[in-house]
Write a protein that binds this DNA or RNA. Structure first.
Length: 230
DNA sequence: TACCAGGAGAAAA
DNA sequence: TTTTCTCATGGT
């Protein structure tokens, strides 16, 4: 079958060498040590955190989760049954509280309708990912956070830091779409949930650590607008 | 004061 | 189909 030339608007391919990615991983691991993500008590708490952390610092998410625990509602059916305004008040510290209240309730209804977390855990990864992506408020990153950190599936999570890191290291162009980046990493490493868990955590840790030395930044920070890389 | 944070969906072009 | 806008609190 004849191949088709890539169009000007086609997403950039991402086929990094395994050796390059392995080097990145090993350097980050040597610098920061194992991250042991995700800081959730239960798989469901991890899922709630995945929704609440959208474009939000984890510190603020912890406050919102603490409020849910304090109100004794950190269960799918209870969150789904709360008045939206009451849930929004509880998760207020996480920001976007009206939006996230709707998303969290949609997600909890999905969990309840599916028969609970245990029932979801029995689904094959492609099926589970497809169903997660169909839930209002669950995009690719949130779905993969849930798959990797709540269900232990070998899925790599691509976030804004990952995109910037790969671009600033010259491994990626920076305009690859989400699926291209995810597939590229998964192809390079194979199905290794433990490694994907660590690598994503290490990239976030690197972003936080590098940002602390921004005044002398040499392009190593992962801020949106790095003064040295723009 | 300005910028940023472990995005996603809706609206506009 | 692609780009832009909106959602919002809290820390530095």
């Amino acid at each position: 079958m004849a191949g088709r030339a890539p169009s000007a608007t086609a997403p950039a391919p991402f086929r990094p060498a395994r050796k390059s990615l392995r080097t990145v991983y090993e350097r980050l691991l040597a610098a920061y040590g194992p991250q042991h993500w995700w800081p959730g008590e239960t798989p469901f708490e991890v899922m709630v955190g995945a929704v609440l952390t959208q474009n939000t610092a984890w510190r603020n998410v912890e406050r919102a989760i603490a409020n849910l625990v304090g109100a004794d509602v950190l269960e799918p059916a209870r969150i789904a049954g709360l008045p939206a305004a009451e849930l929004a008040a509880l998760i207020r510290p996480a920001g976007y509280f009206n939006v996230k209240a709707r998303r969290l309730q949609a997600f909890c209804r999905f969990v309840v309708d599916a028969g609970g977390v245990e029932a979801l855990a029995r689904l094959p990864t492609p099926v589970l990912r497809h169903r997660l992506l169909a839930v209002h408020g669950v995009g690719p990153e949130t779905a993969d956070d849930i798959l990797l950190y709540a269900f232990g599936r070998p899925v790599f999570v691509v976030d804004a830091y990952t995109r910037r890191l790969f671009a600033r290291l010259g491994l990626a162009r920076g305009d690859e779409d989400y699926e291209a980046l995810r597939a590229g990493v998964e192809r390079a490493f194979g199905a290794d949930a433990a490694l994907f868990n660590e690598l994503h955590g290490l990239i976030v840790q690197h972003a936080k650590a590098a940002c602390a030395k921004v005044p002398r930044c040499a392009g190593c920070c992962l801020r949106r607008r790095c003064p040295a890389s723009s």
